[in-house]
Design a protein around this nucleic acid. Structure first.
Length: 367
DNA sequence: GATTCGTGGTC
DNA sequence: TGACCAAGAAT
């Protein structure tokens, strides 16, 4: 291990030159690279967490249109912020952005901090995001360690373990390699190398500026590195959902802040218990979550959805209000709304899959 | 260190 | 189809 570090220190100057040279002619041109506004760069870094560039691009543009400065974000409503994030996933990121924006306004009068400990103190910002912001916005020499960098480094040194089990060592390697004179370009270049050349499936070693020094390549192991973590199987859940009508009005509730998909709105529902029908479950969940009595009238649709760690089948019922007053018993909020107002609320993707079926039902059931 | 967070894309 | 992955952080 010590040998590996000394070897890397020795060849690092040459690696930096080759990488920066490659980056000048092959680097991607991205909207957050042509600016220095730390607020906008921060937004891009948060959106890019576990999310591909092409997915982020439209959200990034809309966000800066909607919240051009940290002040605009800080004074926006939480529902409005979540609505702009709808569909991007990892919704806690939106809450953290909102909280951090208010902190930046309150603690620093809206000026983005430029030192590592303070940046790290903001919610939703870890070491990689902090390094990314500080190097991109202020050209400060802080290393990064995202998925691209982990893969590049794991191949460069022929890492003997899965990257997840060598975090500390990989941070050291990223710090050794970092070009202290051009940290901004270097970090961006390192990520582009991972995204464009040192790709997970088909690494383009013949185009790589580090080919002659790469241990994986020299050992013919570029297709087998980095080593993978053992897999675990994902459970499947059966969920009943109640689309409750009271006359023209529709019932929606807001998920608790601390739960999965926290702050998003949904149709009430929950896991079907053993020996229970989906319709019985839908009625029971409405009673438990918002305290009213309904009857299940008709099955609306069944949809499937995949999450990272489990999959679900949603069985949705059109239900009719019977009695009681809505209360947020197991949710953050609950409301009767007009069906045409649905787009004003942020919904998880699994619920959105029900929307076309609901529209079709409404079209054939006037009144 | 291992888990929990979403969604869209690829093969 | 299912596995895998993408500019990770918080617990």
């Amino acid at each position: 291990m010590g040998n590996s570090h000394r070897w890397l220190e020795k060849i690092a100057p040459s690696l930096r030159l080759h990488l920066l040279d490659w980056y000048r002619s092959h680097g991607r041109s991205l909207p957050w690279r042509s600016i220095r506004d730390p607020y906008a760069i921060w937004i891009s870094e948060i959106m890019l967490q576990q999310t591909q560039v092409n997915t982020v691009l439209p959200y990034y543009r809309r966000w800066l249109q909607e919240f051009p400065t940290v002040h605009d974000l800080a004074r926006a409503s939480r529902d409005h912020v979540l609505k702009q994030w709808e569909g991007l996933g990892y919704y806690r990121r939106a809450h953290y952005l909102h909280q951090a924006a208010q902190e930046i306004v309150d603690r620093f009068q809206g000026g983005f901090p430029a030192d590592l400990p303070t940046v790290l103190s903001l919610p939703g910002i870890g070491r990689t995001t902090a390094g990314g912001i500080l190097s991109a916005a202020f050209n400060l020499p802080h290393p990064i360690l995202d998925g691209n960098v982990k893969r590049v480094l794991a191949r460069l040194v022929a890492l003997p373990t899965p990257p997840a089990k060598a975090q500390s060592r990989l941070w050291t390697l990223s710090g050794i390699l970092l070009d202290r004179c051009e940290p901004r370009c270097f970090n961006q270049a390192l990520m582009d190398l991972g995204a464009l050349v040192c790709r997970p499936k088909h690494p383009q070693c013949c185009l790589c500026p580090w080919q002659k020094d790469c241990r994986a390549y020299n050992q013919g192991r570029q297709f087998n590195l980095p080593l993978a973590m053992p897999i675990r199987t994902r459970p499947h859940k059966l969920i009943a959902v109640a689309v409750v009508f009271r006359g023209q009005e529709l019932l929606i509730d807001q998920r608790p802040e601390s739960s999965m998909l926290g702050g998003l709105w949904e149709f009430p529902g929950g896991k079907i218990e053993p020996g229970e029908t989906a319709a019985e479950c839908a009625v029971r969940e409405v009673k438990e979550e918002v305290g009213i009595d309904v009857v299940a009238e008709q099955e609306l649709a069944t949809v499937e959805h995949e999450y990272t760690h489990f999959s679900i089948t949603l069985i949705a019922y059109i239900c009719r209000y019977q009695s009681g007053t809505i209360q947020p018993l197991q949710c953050a909020d609950v409301r009767w709304i007009q069906p045409q107002d649905l787009p004003q609320f942020a919904f998880p993707m699994a619920n959105q899959k029900l929307f076309p079926h609901l529209h079709a039902w409404l079209a054939t059931h006037p009144l």
